[in-house]
Each structure stands twice: as C-alpha cells, then as structure tokens.
Simulated scan of single mutants.
Amino acid sequence: MTERTQVMTAWTVGKVAETFGVTVRTLHHYDDIGLLRPSERTSAGYRIYTDADLQRLQQIVVYRRLEMPLEEITELLDGDSDPAEHLRRQRATVMSRLGELNDLVQAIDRALEKEMSDEKLSPSDLKELFGDGFEESYQTEAEERWGDSEAWAQSQRRTANYTRADWEAVKAENDALNKAFIDAWDSGLPATSEQAMAAAEMHRASVQRFYDCDYGMQRCLADMFVQDERFAKTYNDMRDGLAQYVRDAIYANAGRKDDGERYGNFNS
C-alpha cells in the first residue's frame, strides 16, 4: 500500500464528518444525488475521499452557507473546476450580502424610530425586517382565502397592536422553530422521533400566537407545506426534503395527541 493510499484511507465518510462537522447523513445525501462522491476505494472496498473531494466539499459548504440550492451548486461545480473562480464568486456574493445587511440595519433604525414614536409598522416596514420571509402578496391571498374565517378574525385582532418587539419575537420564534426541525433532520432522526415531534409542537404553539390551532388545523397547514410550492421551497431551500419531513412530524405528533379521537375534535 502506498503512502498516498494510506493517507486517503483515513478520509472515510465517518472521518470526514467528524473532522469537518458535516453529518454522515448529509454526506450520504450528497453522494446519492451525485454532488460529492468519494473517488477512491480501499483494498477492502470501502469508499474514501481524496484531497480533490475535500476541496469540492469545502466549496459546497461555502455555497450552502450562502443559502444556494444544491441543484445550483451542482451546476456551478460541474461547470467550472477552477477553485479561484469559485472563491471570487463566493466573495462577490458575500459582499452583496454585506450590502443587504447594511440596508437591513437602516430599515431597523427607521422602524426603531417609528416604534419610539408609537407608530405602527407598515407592510413595507415588515418586509424590510423579515426580508423574503414576509411577502405582502401572501397577505392579500390569505385574506381572499380565509377572510371570512374565525381564524383570520382572530389573527387580525391579535396582531392589530403588535409592536416592533412583538414582531421581533415572532421572527425569533420562527428561527428557533426552523432550527429545531433542522437539528432533528441533521441528526438523522425520523419524523416520528421525540425531537421532531417536539418541533411540531413548537410549530403549533407559534401558530397559536395568531389564532387558535388544534391538531386538525395544524394537519391542514402541514399539507400546504408540501402542496404549495412556495411553502415547500422555503423549507427545501434549508434542507432538501425538509418540507415533507416537517409535514410528517406534524402528522406524527397530532396522531399521538389524538388519543384515538378523530383529528380536530379537541382543542388542547
């Protein structure tokens, strides 16, 4: 066995995961979709990563930190093998994000001025605060679909006097909720696990900030996460397949809370 082969033998899937903080599940997923496949094998047939594979992994991780979808990363890496070009592209993206963050700071400052003078945040103020997480057209569509429902009326009453601090709490809750689902996913836990179902319960609690949400209602919301491509994209941009995972976790949690009753027949 050559010295080079001995070095490569150290870079098994488990070793790469341990050294670089990428989960084994993620590495297997990259392998399955052809984004990053170990290039060599040991004499015993175990697949191992080369230095070139690890360089490609570094590029993938940076692009993912920039929230780029895996499909686009694949196209970029397969279309251009020059590491320097990828670094230039990544730097340009980061500089663009810095500009966006500067704009966000200014938006927060303007909102803070309004908060100090007891002005209610406008839809454009909320858009600046939440970024792509707030889309005014969604508000219009939601009113058209559910404007006559009690849930809509409750939501309007509860948010009518929300302050900036309230909306910041909403955003913090949403970020923590997404992290809970992602942590369960990255840990390789099934949607039926305690951790995933605990995240599902967090989701129901966050919805109840706006309107009463029993488990039957939550299941309806969960179906939208996979049926509506906009909701699905929001989750799947965080982790491929996360929308279905969230839906399944909500169903699993609702099922165990149901205690044999039909969904939606209780309001605990």
Rank of each mutant, 00 (worst) to 15 (best):
T74N: 05
D118N: 02
F231A: 07
D223A: 12
S206R: 08
E113V: 12
A169V: 03
N102I: 04
E67Y: 04
G99E: 14
D109A: 07
D80M: 13
R256N: 04
W152G: 01
I73V: 12
C220N: 13
A176V: 07
Q55Y: 12
E75D: 14
D237S: 12
D80A: 12
M224G: 05
S39W: 09
T234G: 11
A92V: 10
A151C: 09
D259P: 00
D183A: 15
I108V: 05
V105E: 13
S122D: 13
F225I: 06
M8I: 03
P83W: 08
Q55S: 12
R110W: 03
Q195F: 15
R239G: 01
A151I: 09
Y138N: 10
N267R: 04
F134W: 05
P123S: 02
L112G: 13
P69W: 10
D175L: 12
E135G: 02
E150K: 11
Y263E: 07
W185L: 01
W185V: 00
L70R: 10
T163A: 11
A165Y: 14
G34S: 08
L87W: 13
G34A: 01
E18R: 09
A252H: 06
T23M: 01
E71H: 15
T9H: 13
R230S: 04
A243T: 07
F181E: 05
D103Q: 10
